[in-house]
């Protein structure tokens, strides 16, 4: 077995800290540590750092239980909540009527449907109230029973949902869709797994995973593949960022002379190393 270098040993110590050592690596690591004071010091420093992190977080928050009254409120509300036990097959029936109406409407009205400004709060058509004759002419030809059936499509997050720049969790989160709010999707991706929205806060276009959403067509829950394409056009996903999974760039790179490491392996760290001119010096070796 090839002996480990110091750098390899220290990376193995980092992996060990995260419980990610491969079988066999533990023995290799121990063998090097036994004969290398430098890496042994690194190991014990890492150990005490982890202990300090743990104790400081526990000192900050302790191990509190949820306060009793809040716990009771949660119990009560949980019992009032109907767990999402799946939609069952009933929606198929509910869907049949609006879809038939929609189909008929599409055959009769050739004008394409353009997703328009939000109409979230649009109330159910007040068919019971008879509009009094007024001087202002309505743009709608007539409010008879044969008025065009206007489909409305919304997504309701079942949980607070990230809205991302693109169609995977690799993309940055740019906005949030909140539970039980209604959002109008702008389109869907080809794989039927992501919907595009206008971010409610940021105003930018962003994508949410359909697993977190209920899709409502005229208030009936539908599955995405059953949404007629004219209502929700297909959109191209943005190019997937080619981020190498690891290592990722440090948010703020630490110069060698203040990174707390003995970068050149001469036994001196940062400003203790005479090769460091100041803490922003990025070369500990000369």
């Amino acid at each position: 077995m090839k002996p480990l270098t110091h750098a390899q040993t220290q990376e193995l110590l980092q992996l060990a800290a995260d419980g990610l050592l491969q079988p066999g690596q533990r023995a290799q690591l121990d063998a090097h540590l036994a004969g290398c004071p430098e890496c042994a010091a690194y190991a014990s420093e890492l150990d005490s750092l982890q202990q300090l992190i743990t104790s400081s977080l526990h000192e900050r928050w302790g191990q509190p239980d949820m306060p009793a009254d809040a716990g009771r409120r949660l119990q009560e509300q949980a019992l009032r909540t109907r767990p999402g036990a799946g939609i069952g097959k009933l929606w198929l029936l509910l869907l049949a009527l609006p879809l038939a109406a929609l189909l008929a409407w599409q055959l009769l009205a050739p004008t394409p449907l353009t997703p328009s400004a939000p109409t979230e709060t649009q109330p159910a058509s007040p068919s019971a109230t008879v509009a009094p004759p007024t001087a202002t002419p309505s743009p709608i030809p007539s409010a008879t029973a044969t008025a065009p059936f206007a489909p409305t499509l919304f997504a309701v997050p079942a949980q607070t949902t990230n809205c991302r720049e693109g169609n995977s969790s690799q993309f940055d989160i740019v906005d949030t869709l909140y539970t039980d709010e209604r959002y109008e999707p702008l389109g869907r991706g080809r794989d039927e797994l992501w919907l595009q929205f206008r971010g409610p806060v940021s105003g930018v276009r962003c994508w949410a995973y359909v697993g977190n959403l209920s899709v409502l067509l005229n208030d009936d829950e539908v599955q995405l593949p059953d949404v007629p394409e004219s209502i929700l056009p297909y959109l191209a996903y943005p190019a997937t960022p080619t981020i190498p999974p690891t290592p990722e760039p440090t948010a703020t790179p630490v110069p060698q002379c203040s990174d707390g490491l003995d970068n050149d392996g001469d036994g001196y760290i940062d400003m203790q190393d005479r090769e460091c001119s100041d803490p922003t010096d990025n070369n500990e070796a000369n």
């Binding site: 809040a70 409120r73 949660l74 509300q77 949980a78 909540t81 109907r82 767990p83 999402g84 036990a85 799946g86 939609i87 079942a158 949980q159 607070t160 539970t179 697993g211 977190n212």
Partner: peptide
């Protein structure tokens, strides 16, 4: 509170 209720509602997922 909010998370637990959201989880119950989304239990099917």
């Amino acid at each position: 509170q909010e998370s637990f209720i959201a989880a119950l509602k989304a239990l099917k997922n």
